[in-house]
C-alpha cells in the first residue's frame, strides 16, 4: 500500500466519513443548494442558515465517496459561525490546497480540513473534495443576490 494512499485516506478523513458532522437538513427558512458531480453521480444537498451576513448553521445530506462526504462534513464544521465573506475566502484557500498550491494556513483555523491536503496528489479526486465547497459558495452567492 502506497504512502500516498495513506495520505489520501487519513484517519481523520475516515472518521468524518464514518461519523459525519452536521448531517441532515435544516428545515425552516434555510438556503437549499442541490449540486451533483456529473462525471460520477455524487450528489449533495446543502442547507445553510445565514443571518446578518453570518452562516449560523450548515447541514448536508447526500451520497458520495469517502472524500466527498468527509469534505462536506468538514466544510459544514468550518464555516459555521463565519461571516459569509470569510467562508468564501476559506473556500479559496481550500481550492489552493486541492491544487497543490501554497495556501494560507494562518488567517483561519483550518483544523481537520488540512487532512484533505493529500487529495492534491490524486487529480481525479479533487472534484469529490470540492463539491461541498462549491455548493456553499453557490448558496451564499444566492443569498447575496436575494438581498440586492
Amino acid at each position: 500500500m502506497s504512502s500516498n494512499l495513506d495520505q489520501l485516506y487519513r484517519q481523520v478523513i475516515m472518521d468524518h466519513y464514518k461519523n459525519p458532522r452536521n448531517k441532515g437538513v435544516i428545515e425552516d427558512n434555510a438556503l437549499t443548494i442541490n449540486m451533483n458531480n456529473p462525471t460520477c453521480g455524487d450528489r449533495i444537498q446543502l442547507t445553510l442558515k445565514v443571518e446578518d451576513g453570518k452562516i449560523e448553521s450548515a447541514k448536508f445530506d447526500g451520497e458520495g465517496c469517502s472524500i466527498s462526504l468527509a469534505s462536506a462534513s468538514m466544510m459544514t464544521q468550518a464555516v459555521k459561525g463565519l461571516p459569509v465573506e470569510d467562508a468564501v475566502k476559506l473556500a479559496k484557500i481550500f481550492y489552493d490546497m486541492m491544487l497543490g498550491n501554497d495556501y494560507d494556513d494562518e488567517s483561519y483555523d483550518l483544523g481537520d480540513i488540512e487532512a484533505l491536503s493529500g487529495v492534491s496528489k490524486f487529480p481525479a479526486r479533487i472534484k469529490c473534495a470540492t463539491l461541498a465547497w462549491k455548493a456553499m459558495e453557490q448558496g451564499v452567492g444566492k443569498d447575496e443576490e436575494e438581498e440586492e
Binding site: 500500500m1 502506497s2 500516498n4 494512499l5 489520501l8 485516506y9 462525471t39 460520477c40 453521480g41 455524487d42 458520495g64 465517496c65 469517502s66 472524500i67 466527498s68 490524486f122 481525479a124 479526486r125 469529490c128
Partner: peptide, 21 residues
C-alpha cells in the same frame, strides 16, 4: 466502499477500472 474509493485503491496498485455512472 464507494466505487470511487475502490478505483483509487486499485489505481494505487496499477489497476485501471472505471467508477461512476
Amino acid at each position: 466502499v464507494h466505487p470511487h474509493d475502490v478505483a483509487t485503491v486499485l489505481d494505487s496498485e496499477g489497476i485501471a477500472v472505471r467508477a461512476g455512472h
